[in-house]
Write a protein that binds this DNA or RNA. Structure first.
Lengths: 343, 343
DNA sequence: TTGTATGCGTTATCAG
DNA sequence: CTGATAACGCATACAA
């Protein structure tokens, strides 16, 4: 049933070591024996055992993707598939496989450090920054174990992320180009780094255009349709109200849209709406939303590449990779076409 | 740096085999030596090498999830994360890990049979029916290699799936209960098994309610918002038009909704809309859609359980598992509340 | 109850 | 160029 290297050696009338060398295409084996051995391997339908190879080589040819499935991460939930695809596309040609591991089983010995790292199941790790705590990344640093964080981390280490600041800039600049000038920002919590970056981009775009907005137009709230609906309802009834808004994500935009509808405010002529995160609603609202698309496949690719670099040469310095988002203009900010009533 | 079983043996002043037995909690080791050895393992921070264990035990404690990332499967794209979570929740306690593998690299030796099965990287496989062709499942059957298909397959083998027929039934029955009787069905292609099942449920519900509908009310088209929009536009302008429609998914429903809006047909009073597939739009349309939710986490759980059964006892007969969907009633079919103008 | 010897399927280090 | 032989880290039959 199962054919090993010894079987091949016997059948080919050579030593196991010779077969091994043929397997690895060693330059010091004659072409004819290579031919002969390969012939027999094909005939006998031989495939080397990855486990035995791993033991001998002291490498699993396996990389681990860590996730915390208990956390219901909207981001991972949406883009997991793409990220995996990206990682896979770079590691597969290098003969590596991808192991997904859930971190939530934090029983003492169920910890991923045991399950994957110490047990040598994987040669490197990719994880998003919510699971890669400062503590963990420092431990991995000490072990000199290769890892990449998806999302910026503050400890010294390699990571990949989207350029949220550039994104905030793009969205805001786009609004300005469309003739909006009284631009609000809705959604997100101040502690979240992603919020800080996005807001930072918004602010710098305003500054560059010499625009100032009241502090009260920057509204922190849970970035879902419910809270943003109420926030927008309040904002849009103030004495001085914005003529446009940058939204933390498409759910927020959805809430703002509902609020505008409830107040009889027309989008985009009276209110422009631009949002981070194309997914999942932007195309399907009325009107469709101008939003920022991110290429999550590329995110996987980058993290895979960086990780493989670290696995190959351990001495490489830590690297970061910032990916540019892409603006998708849609009706919700197309003021030009509907600006008959513009002040 | 790396501590092996020999180091522990030396430090504890026992034989390697004793340490091994402690590791596996063998009943024929005295409590005191167990204590002592464990103590030392903890002190020296020892974790057994999964590769060495695998080689000795002839098992990888690893299961493979096969996907074809080239196919842009809407289903997997949406639910990959949940399915993985489900699988993980059953295999992790059994000390198994999950390896994701992309099938599209169909270079001769990059085939997953080599990469995973023959190379003994995994002890079993889960794959959806689009990658598990008849040919492949038959080959796996011959090899007696454990596998589970996500989605029904016709070759003898184990699979898990949602009960699409029951789903069609539930949606249709719900419409009937709401007082609708002229029920159309939009979206899907006749060759797709999933369509056949969903339509079958719809038809049987009609039959049970002694309702008949014109053959032309069953409309095949690509199940997206564009094609279904045009299909609905045409359907709703016919001499005799339906008072409700069952949609293949939420995109189709979105298209139908647009068409109704364009024609000034009120939903739900003049047209009821019920749809398969909660995700991703159902909650966010106006009005929100009555739809069918599926628990994809459970799908993962089921497939994991079935696979582990097969890995444990190879002689187990093939099993199938049909999961029930859940109806989520929303405004799009709430005729009762809006039925002032009902005929 | 514990220790010894051998095997799991490769790779790698030497001789030849 | 090719062939013994010793790792790799753990499990297991058998002996003590």
């Amino acid at each position: 049933m199962k054919v090993t290297i010894s079987d091949i050696a016997k059948a080919a009338n050579v030593a196991k070591s010779t077969v091994s060398k043929v397997l690895n295409d060693s330059p010091k084996i004659s072409q004819e024996t290579k031919q002969k051995v390969r012939e027999i391997m094909k005939q006998m339908n031989y495939t080397p055992s990855s486990i035995a190879t791993g033991l001998a080589r002291q490498s699993s040819c396996n990389i681990g993707l860590l996730v915390d499935m208990s956390k219901e991460s909207e981001f991972l939930n949406q883009f997991f598939y793409n990220i995996i695809g990206g990682i896979e596309s770079v590691i597969a040609p290098l003969k590596y496989e991808l192991t997904i591991s859930n971190v939530q089983h934090s029983s003492p010995e169920g910890h991923f450090l045991n399950r994957l790292v110490f047990s040598k199941r994987v040669d490197g790790i990719i994880a998003n920054n919510s699971v890669l705590t400062e503590e963990l990344s420092e431990e991995l640093n000490q072990l000199e174990f290769p890892y990449i964080s998806i999302g910026e981390i503050m400890t010294p280490g390699s990571w990949v992320d989207f350029d949220n600041e550039a994104g905030g800039n793009m969205l805001t600049e786009h609004l300005i180009e469309q003739g909006y000038s009284k631009i609000a920002f809705i959604g997100g919590q101040q502690q979240e780094k992603i919020y800080t970056h996005r807001l930072g981009g918004y602010l710098s775009a305003l500054q560059q255009a010499d625009l100032t907005v009241p502090q009260q137009w920057i509204i922190n709230c849970k970035a879902d349709e419910h809270d943003s609906y109420h926030a927008a309802l309040e904002l849009l009834q103030r004495e001085e109200r914005p003529d446009s808004v940058v939204c933390m994500n498409s759910y927020v935009a959805f809430g703002v849209l509902q609020a505008a509808k409830a107040l009889g405010i027309d989008v985009p002529s009276e209110l422009g709406i631009a949002a981070f995160d194309e997914y999942p609603l932007s195309r399907y609202t009325t009107p469709p939303l101008t939003s920022l698309n991110i290429d999550t496949f590329k995110l996987g690719v980058s993290s895979g590449q960086l990780l493989m670099e670290r696995i190959r040469g351990n001495d490489a310095p830590h690297k970061h990779s910032l990916l540019e988002p892409e603006l998708i203009p849609r009706e919700s900010t197309m003021r030009a076409k509907f600006s008959g009533t513009t002040s």
